[in-house]
């Protein structure tokens, strides 16, 4: 066979294995470090805390996996989350005045959050697919717009949900079934559905095809623009879902809400083994990436391991190591 046919399969097979386990190895190492440094690391409360706080970024990162796999990028998700949270709080406060502290207000509030997220994602998607503007520029623009809008809505301060309503809505973050809190359940469901969608549906395959080579996808009668649009709309919807879980936690939104979530989500996706240039995505990897990011912060808080000034450096090192573990072929060519 050709030189090429003969040489690559062998190398590829071993690299697939290492690529697959790279992030998992990093996660296991982090867990072992956590166990050795703190007795409370494996306590029920700590495990629950870490998983629940991962849920927001996690839910968003699952959506981001599809966007990046299809060769796109969305920098606006953090601002979008803050904006959607603001809209939701204002709407719920207004409805509470009329309808009192009732279940319909909560349900309507959730619908509004989901819809606003979806709409915001659609706007990103339409600008990218129909107007043909670079995703980086569009979402950089909307990132600034949503961040300003939330600052404006909150008048520079903080939007808070009414006290009674907040207490009523609270269980959505703090409650759960059988000791597993809602954010963890929702995150798990989103991740499982995302993994299935990525690996076993035409949509997931189409995303990978578009990210791998858009022209080939188009020539293979894949509806490129529609699939792209759906990835952004889906991401927006998931931002809305993350906000539904986020608002009951502190009952407030401000211009500091969701700060840098976009970078954390993108980092989680890449740590998980999805290619930043698109063409290959892995939802379970993203989940591992999110957990890695959360665990670093958790371990640093649980210990006096390093000066708090160096927290960012530790995070940076772990992120790079997690990605290096996936590359066994030396520098990318």
């Amino acid at each position: 066979m050709t030189d090429a046919t003969a040489k690559k399969p062998a190398a590829r097979r071993s690299s697939v294995n290492l690529q697959a386990i790279g992030p998992v190895v990093a996660l296991i190492v982090l867990v072992l470090i956590g166990i050795s440094l703190s007795d409370n690391f494996l306590s029920y409360a700590n495990v629950t805390n870490v998983l629940a706080r991962s849920a927001f970024i996690g839910i968003i990162a699952v959506g981001m996996t599809f966007v990046i796999t299809a060769g796109g990028l969305d920098l606006s998700v953090g601002s979008m989350a803050a904006f959607v949270a603001g809209v939701m709080i204002i709407a719920m406060n207004a409805m509470t005045e009329r309808m009192g502290v009732t279940l319909p207000v909560v349900l309507l509030g959730m619908l509004i959050a989901l819809f606003s997220g979806f709409a915001a994602g659609m706007i990103n998607g339409l600008l990218i697919t129909r107007a043909g503007i670079e995703a980086f520029i569009v979402t950089l623009g909307t990132m600034g717009i949503y961040r300003s809008l939330i600052t404006w809505l909150a008048d520079g301060g903080t939007l808070s949900i009414g006290y009674q309503m907040g207490e009523f809505y609270r269980p959505v973050y703090y409650g759960g079934i059988a000791g597993i809190s809602w954010p963890i359940i929702v995150f798990a469901l989103v991740a499982i559905i995302g993994e299935i969608a990525m690996r076993h549906t035409a949509f997931g395959r189409h995303c990978a095809a578009i990210g791998s080579n858009e022209k080939v996808a188009r020539y293979s009668s894949v509806a490129v623009l529609r699939v792209r649009l759906i990835t952004y709309a889906l991401l927006g919807l998931l931002v809305g879902l993350a906000v539904v879980m986020y608002v009951p936690r502190l009952g407030s939104a401000s211009s500091a809400t969701g700060l840098l979530w976009e970078l954390e989500a993108i980092a989680a996706v890449i740590i998980g083994g999805t290619l930043l240039k698109g063409g290959f995505g892995r939802v379970w990897g993203t989940v591992v990436g999110v957990l890695i990011l959360s665990l670093i912060g958790n371990i640093l808080n649980l210990t006096d391991f390093v000066s708090p000034y160096l927290n960012g450096a530790i995070q940076g090192v772990v992120i790079i190591l997690a990605v290096v573990l996936q590359r066994n072929t030396g520098p990318a060519r």
């Binding site: 076993h200 549906t201 189409h206 095809a209 791998s212 022209k215 080939v216 996808a217 020539y219 290959f280």
Partner: peptide, 29 residues
């Protein structure tokens, strides 16, 4: 440039134009 996804496997390339025929919503491997 426009015919095949070079990093993907034979299977993924073969069925790309007609995925819906291979099961909806889940693809039958």
């Amino acid at each position: 440039g426009a015919g095949l996804l070079l990093e993907k496997t034979l299977r993924e390339n073969l069925t790309l134009p007609l995925l819906s025929e291979f099961g909806n919503p889940l693809i039958n491997r």
